[in-house]
Design a protein around this nucleic acid. Sequence first.
DNA 1: TCTCTTCAGTAACTTAAGTTACTGAGAAAA
DNA 2: TTTTCTCAGTAACTTAAGTTACTGAAGAGA
Lengths: 228, 228
Amino acid sequence: MKSIPETIPDLRTLPCLSVLKEDELSLIGEQAHVSTFLKNEILFRETDPLTFIFIVKTGRIKLFKTSHEGRELTIKLLGPHEYFCCAPLYLDGKYSVSAMAMEDSAVVMIPSKDFKEIISVSVSEIGLRVIRGLCSKIKYLSVLAENLSFKDVEQRIIFALSRLAEEKSPDNNIVSLAVSHQDIASMTGTVREVVSRTMMKLKKEKVIVDSSARGFTVDKEKLSRLLK
Amino acid sequence: MKSIPETIPDLRTLPCLSVLKEDELSLIGEQAHVSTFLKNEILFRETDPLTFIFIVKTGRIKLFKTSHEGRELTIKLLGPHEYFCCAPLYLDGKYSVSAMAMEDSAVVMIPSKDFKEIISVSVSEIGLRVIRGLCSKIKYLSVLAENLSFKDVEQRIIFALSRLAEEKSPDNNIVSLAVSHQDIASMTGTVREVVSRTMMKLKKEKVIVDSSARGFTVDKEKLSRLLK
DNA sequence: TCTCTTCAGTAACTTAAGTTACTGAGAAAA
DNA sequence: TTTTCTCAGTAACTTAAGTTACTGAAGAGA
């Protein structure tokens, strides 16, 4: 993992940076550096704090999530001139995916604060707000994909109920929801009958306190205890 | 479905529009109108051409995708002051999700070309490029989620192989890929053994022309014929 | 050349979850 | 009030796909 200077031509390959003027570009160029990673080397883990934006120069990088049981879901493969970690920049400051070199690769690394700085000064407030909105949508969708691939139906239902209850009433523990089994099935990617089966189980465990025709009542705390 | 004027206070509730000056805002305000939808009424279908950006005023709107077999995956529920269809604006011009009112709802509808116009003039070229990049990521992730929920492993593998082959070599029909079964498993959210099973089947059907230790060769055209 | 490691192939088995096919309850409509 | 919907509950069954547990082949490294 050695460093070389002269990163400006690589920065130019990014659509969003290509429109910068020469002097603006060299401002980030000075902070950026190229690192090389061997096949199977990890660039970062999903829980690491975000410190760099990456541009693939040569090679291929795999972005993936890891389940509790060690299973893996590849989110995207990146080839030359693709970049990543722009989205977490406007979220919680964690990478939120892991990255591994699929072959020996060279990568331009831009300190995330310099990248963010350039975006901040070049983009108006309204643009930044649109960007933030899109980033949280990206986060939302990658959690959805992760859940669909790693969790079983019961866990997905528990997750969906937790979120619904939290959205409806952040301050109360006992929350009534007016949602049909069919709706929950659609949110969790399953069918009505399986939801019915699972809800019965949760009712026996007193996680669902009460249920009638057009809704039911959950205990948020008990729900979150069941969340793996 | 009746119309009322005076939409400016509703537009203000959107973070990205709230920073606009009074006169800029009234420019879109004049074009926007409020429509009401009854419970279960469809606002639009995923294949419809994008014509409006929506802001929920009251009620709840469900965004969802529909599978070939008629199953449904809810992508997101939207409550008051949430908006949607910003992402397709910078993509293929289709809604890409369907929307249904979950209860009687009032919705502010902004003609998409007016919304896009405002964004275009208020956001610099660099901002727009970042936005376009994020939008295609959103598209990518929603296809991933859709595949995970609707398609069986065989279809997901066929899809992944098609995409890999297309990325590697858009112009040739017969393409060699240097990807392990484990990698494919990770891309499709399954395990190695199941990939092996499926690849054997595809080999018998002459869709996979050749395979050796570190890769295999696919027939793109035959692959896409199998894609449902 | 000879391990050692990694990846593919396969079979037998288990199980989660989808399917089919009902019944019944409660709300809304007539 | 009666009928008609819509939604929930349930049981029996089927099946796709995950698990376990091997064997063998091909490269990589010593």
